[in-house]
Amino acid sequence: MDAIFVLVEHRQGAIRDITFEMLMKGKQLCEKTGNPLTAVLLGNDVGAMAEELKDRANRVILIEDQKLENFNSEAYQQVLGNLVEQEKPSLLLMGHTAFGMDLAPGLAVQMNAPLATDCIDVMMEDDRVKATRQTYGGKLNVEVRLKPAQCSMVTLRPASFSVADYSLGGEITRVTSPLTEEIPSKRFLEYVEAAAGEVDITQTEILVSVGRGIKDPENIPMVQELADSLGAALSCSRPVVDKKWLPKDRQVGTSGKTVKPKVYIAIGISGAFQHAAGMKGSGTIIAINRDPKAPIFNIAHFGIVGDLFKIVPALKGKIGEVLA
């Protein structure tokens, strides 16, 4: 039976959440199709991770090599290309993450495998692979069919599947790394950690968060005052940081910070998944947006459709009265 492969994603000694999400989805697919679920773990000295994953799959394929110490798409591509040729899985799942975005497209071309990226669901029906992905910043869902192939590839969007506990009591199989030498053409040098800022947005109970809808840096004080009046901190979406209107340490999202305040007020933020992934866990989400179809309203608990330049001053005035 052709297995479903899940590529384990780990960094700096820890398995990343996306791995468990993919395994969960993989398990659901396997229950329907009867195929076995295999976790594929590449790294150096990662035996303990294999043990950790054992129950999550029918099999863990473990390939250890010093040259796999840090992620390198070229090394991974060689090893995986080799493995897939030998093992002939029907489906290979990876994360639509910095890891998968660097690796999946090249591997797909090498294997002549159809690839659907950034998917929020994947289905297998009579050997045909279908996937659901989102376009236009999350405003539209698209169902795609992958061309029939021996092996298909799908990258899954992080935080698309919730993870429950289960045990498949899998076994660990060691496979020898086919790498004979370091990859001279692409070398990992080091990690660079972001500098800590003045305000730690992960530690406040209320966050007032502002997005591109704020239009101009001159309007930032308006939302800062709203935050101040609530004893909240000011955070933002990525474009606000890209334009240097607020420092990087204020950014919420996959490439910024993950926050879980009691209340998150999203102002002029559309709710792209990279942003949503960083704030979905907030206790109560209030979104202010003039587009009633903005994806943020799908994850918010409370929504206000309207112009932020009217709502924010009104709210600020009222809070001044009530809380004074």
Partner: peptide
């Protein structure tokens, strides 16, 4: 390598409770 079968609007799920009325 992939063919679009159909597009549709994302299901709203529970959705947000909309706050309406005057600014006040």
């Amino acid at each position: 390598m992939t063919v679009v079968e159909k597009v549709f609007f994302p299901p709203v799920g529970e959705g947000a409770q909309m706050l309406e009325g005057t600014m006040d």
